[in-house]
Nucleic acid binder design. Structure first.
Lengths: 285, 285
DNA sequence: CGGATGAGTATAGTTTATATATCCATCATC
DNA sequence: GATGATGGATATATAAACTATACTCATCCG
């Protein structure tokens, strides 16, 4: 079966499962095929997945049968939610949006400056080639009030939950640091690398963060949390790169959970706090 | 031009722009076409986008020309980064991954329980049909230590940055609330709605959060932040649903920025704090 | 009871793709 | 400097996919 046909069958199945129905017009709109072709696709789908399709003459819609069994995709909530985000304008163009009757939805607005495509492309090239690149970077440190050209040797990208950064060896400070992508204004001149990716120990080393239910919660609540995080003996371990530990703490509000937040808002706390703090201190040095 | 052909040309362009090169094998692998067809596609691409393609005989690779001008896609960093996330196993299956030589990368691990696809499907059905549904929900409140069946009338989905929830009218508490999707264990029985979507004022009303650079930052840093957020007169406005205000505050650490964090980690603060707190109090009532 | 809508199907013709084969250039290796 | 491996271009014949057009049928709405 050709790739395009397979995609259309997958689309039919997606719509059946998530939106409860599909008709020819949907296929025509999504793939720009002719109306008879859409008919054929539906017939073909019925052949390949017998019994999944029921035509509701009154609603003029093909509906999923009660014993619907997907064969062209694995239904996954996160896939659907990714489409939803896409429909919301989240990433614009990574996927074709397959939703017709999307529910009303909203994601938290995260204000920030765009990442420049040309900049990202040049940085990626430097990573691929194992070379250095000069970045016109707007630092937040007090020492560097204006953007400056900095030679760096990038080797990886990281996402802290709010934004993407490049992990790179800084030729000025002679160590590996994170550079927020949206603060990279422009790039120039590739050159010789200042360090090898394998030298970035904080990136490669991971620390096992032990999470436990917040002890400020009631007994029963703690057991719920333990289920939620699939804990064993009241503990869950999450491996986090040392270079990411700081963000991990901030994002999950692990640093202030016990002090400021209402306990039921902070489900988990770090149970190996001493080791965690030591690892964090090492990463921040 | 047929949909499949168009997609392949788009793919060629994507690879040219983001990965610097492409060859026939890439097309064959991605779309399961024959080798001659891949040749034809490249010829066709050269026809449609003259001058973009340069064959490097030594590298055995088609490369992007220096004056490469995309015609089948708009290069966008967020699109690339979305593919990267996908490659990382983030959303599994929403998009075809188009990356071959992805850089090393990592996102912050967010531990949580999966959302059940069947549950989400049933909830979506209730939203579409404007009906209620019973959810076996594991609350975190001390009053409800065990999961309980609750009739709710859902009307929208929300994402707080860490997880998705359903916005729904709770038939037990007689008000609109957020139900974390991963805490919905199972569903049953659709029924009559308890309220209309339009009654959910906190969802529909938005509050204009005024953001200003953190005053603890130096003059020059503040002006950088102002650029970053595209502020006018040192202020940026972000419209946030009242039902989302609480998450907004937590996620951006606006509540503790001035107290606990190093100022250079918290770029912005709320400048209409009194109104913000009032709106928040209203939303939490 | 029309009329509109959406589905199914048949025909003929076009486009797209396959399989197979042949040829060519580059490069690494001996 | 011959050899083989790799990747690309092209030709031919055939098959599959798809379009355009046309006609039929069923259901629902006013």
């Amino acid at each position: 079966m050709r790739w395009g046909v397979e995609k259309r069958l997958e689309f039919i199945e997606f719509r059946l499962f998530w939106e409860g129905g599909i008709n020819r017009a949907d296929i025509v709109d999504q793939f720009s095929v002719s109306v008879p072709q859409a008919s054929k696709d539906l017939t073909l789908y019925e052949e390949k997945a017998p019994g999944n399709l029921i035509y509701d003459k009154s609603a003029k819609l093909y509906k999923a049968a009660d014993d619907f069994k997907p064969v062209f995709m694995q239904p996954s909530a996160s896939t659907y939610l990714a489409h939803l985000r896409e429909a919301n304008g989240g990433t614009a163009g990574a996927t074709d949006v397959w939703l017709a009757s999307a529910p009303e939805h909203d994601a938290l607005p995260i204000p920030h400056r765009r990442v420049d495509a040309e900049v990202l492309r040049d940085v990626l090239k430097a990573v691929r080639d194992g070379r250095s690149i000069e970045v016109f970077y707007q630092s937040m440190s007090a020492k560097r009030p204006a953007p400056e050209w900095r030679p760096v040797t990038p080797h990886a990208l990281g996402n802290d939950g709010l934004r993407w950064h490049v992990r790179a060896f800084c030729h000025v400070d002679h160590k590996f640091k994170d550079f927020i992508l949206s603060r990279c204004i422009k790039t120039q001149k590739h050159g010789l690398p200042g360090a090898s990716a394998s030298d970035d120990m904080l990136w490669h080393d991971r620390f096992a963060v032990a999470l436990a239910p917040n002890p400020a919660l009631s007994e029963s609540q703690q057991s719920i949390i333990a289920q939620d995080y699939e804990m064993k003996n009241g503990r869950a371990e999450v491996m986090v790169r040392k270079a990411m530990l700081y963000y991990f703490q901030k994002r999950l509000r692990l640093d202030i959970a016990d002090k400021l937040d209402n306990p039921h808002e902070i489900p988990v706390v770090v149970s190996n706090r001493a080791a965690f703090d030591a690892a964090l201190a090492e990463a921040m040095a």
